[in-house]
Design a protein around this nucleic acid. Sequence first.
DNA 1: TAACATAATGAATCTAAGA
DNA 2: CTCTTAGATTCATTATGTT
Lengths: 368, 368
Amino acid sequence: MGLVPTQRPLPLDQVLVGDCIAAMNALPASSVDCVFADPPYNLQLGEAGLLRPDQSRVDAVDDDWDKFATFEAYDAFTRDWLAACRRVMKPNATLWVIGSYHNIFRVGSALQDLGYWILNDIVWRKANPMPNFRGKRFTNAHETLIWASRSAESKGYTFHYDALKGGNEDLQMRSDWFIPLCTGEERLKDVEGHKVHPTQKPEALLARSLMAATNPGDVVLDPFFGTGTTGAVAKRLGRRFIGIEREATYAKAAMERIAAVQPLSKAALMVAPTKRAEPRVPFLSVIEAGHIRPGEIVTDERRRFRATVRPDGQLDNGLVIGSIHKIGALVQGLPACNGWTFWHVERAGKPVVIDSYRAGLRQAMANG
Amino acid sequence: MGLVPTQRPLPLDQVLVGDCIAAMNALPASSVDCVFADPPYNLQLGEAGLLRPDQSRVDAVDDDWDKFATFEAYDAFTRDWLAACRRVMKPNATLWVIGSYHNIFRVGSALQDLGYWILNDIVWRKANPMPNFRGKRFTNAHETLIWASRSAESKGYTFHYDALKGGNEDLQMRSDWFIPLCTGEERLKDVEGHKVHPTQKPEALLARSLMAATNPGDVVLDPFFGTGTTGAVAKRLGRRFIGIEREATYAKAAMERIAAVQPLSKAALMVAPTKRAEPRVPFLSVIEAGHIRPGEIVTDERRRFRATVRPDGQLDNGLVIGSIHKIGALVQGLPACNGWTFWHVERAGKPVVIDSYRAGLRQAMANG
DNA sequence: TAACATAATGAATCTAAGA
DNA sequence: CTCTTAGATTCATTATGTT
């Protein structure tokens, strides 16, 4: 590198169409304040395709850009783009990467190998994830973001601790974020009503990341720009962006989308916390918290019906095993029952409704 | 199996004191049903620099070679113990590993490189995490578990889908678990009131993992046994354990702790039979038992489709003869159909699903 | 129009037994 | 080994259609 000749100006608020590594290598070193990257996940899906219980087909991400022959090939790709990012990052810049269990461990390792310094891993808890249709695994209800500084010596990175805390009911912002999927109006669709991009991210996710780790006027680079969520949020928040996208159709959709975005006033940037429905509390959590012991007997208030609490959070009435709701309905011969208000445990000789153990857990679960 | 030469019995419900890799290599291959591992991560950053695995300080944190060597040593260690685990795992065994952003990416990558197949990554959301005192990062409010099968071909792993669902408001259990930290009574303390082990995991975390992925009587191996949470929970849940721990003081504390654990009753641990596990009933048996007569008309619930019951247990829709499933799929134009839940017969003017005749026959088959 | 019912869909590593 | 068949399997939200 050596001498830096007449430096070209940064291509701000634009989308560069082409390979992200080449495009980044054409940018001057130490020139961006933040990177947000949503690289291919390398899903490795089977040939057969997946059917829902209603026999409709799941629209899987089977695009060519997500296919890598081996982990080695994926690792090489990952190292290359991460290294290119690191070169253009200012010394105190930070980088966000999002991924799932398919790829995030490769990405995290590569980050560390290249000298990045992990500040947090963040869990995006999806409000409405796709279920596991075959019942063979836990519902894959989250994705992971890694937030890293350029190196362990980058102590002066931006983090708006107080703003985040103020927007989080004066509690420190935790590493688990509860945010809905990108659907509805926000999801870009073509004239036929099909989604333009298979993996468009919600703006709320980008907004929280960029609010936390950048200042107004900062330059945010996105090497996998897609349909430009990063650009749209950057513009709205008064940040600048540089997008790089290989597919011209995505790039075009992104620029049209961003053109329609209105930047927010400073006052509007102080976002009110999102209202959430009360979180569901699994009955298993009441047992795990020690309020009710496995093997205990639950009864209705007048002790006409009884069942035994199992360690898995189900009830056993001697004939059938099922949820508090199912067994409650069964013993009464009703089609449905709210087990929380129906079942009681004995405490100091008196029946205590199990619903009384829910409130505390709800409060604790609501954070994040 | 063929001939099995004088095989040493497994050291069940014991703690082996020593190096976990040597201890595992002394166990017979394909002998455990599940592994739960809470490995050390010595990649800890000090406030002012990097520590080597032996806790000596790395002077020049910008020394790339030294940094690389540290990760490399950790990776080699990780590969070794994961490979040793894989050898002693039965073909359908699964493995759990827990870690934080310091080490989980190394572990996940090593897993994949060794041929394990990741089934889920699970987020343990802590109810009461340690706050971030300096306000420079998000509160680190979670840890990550990886759940993996021995290989992509291990399709027969244990997963108690229905039990988990029943304890979770009749909804699929998600990949984000909300569980309190290990504190209070549960936390092991020495005579001076200091915690015995720095990273004792909550029993609820182990209980959910082991209930999900093992059956009563299964053998659970924990190569980093510590103060024996895995053993305590395994005993309580009627599973067997093999613990391996390098520090004799931890091993001793673990055995004392486990000795005090009362196992739950067999009845409480009984696994309810799932639909998948129930014996198959030929539709012909329903006819033979007289529940449905040959020549009767079957319809879907809303009577849009119809077919005739043949004496051989097949259906005839006027054009094609085939199984209840095949004809069900055919009339709907779907690739597949569960004929048991699709077809109905008329009884007292109302449609009755033919599946309702299976339960009685199953009962009879079980008794006969 | 309002209320209600039905259909669609989201980064998915998603079956098991028997011939 | 492959091929065939039985039959088990979904949650939250948005979009669309019907009464």
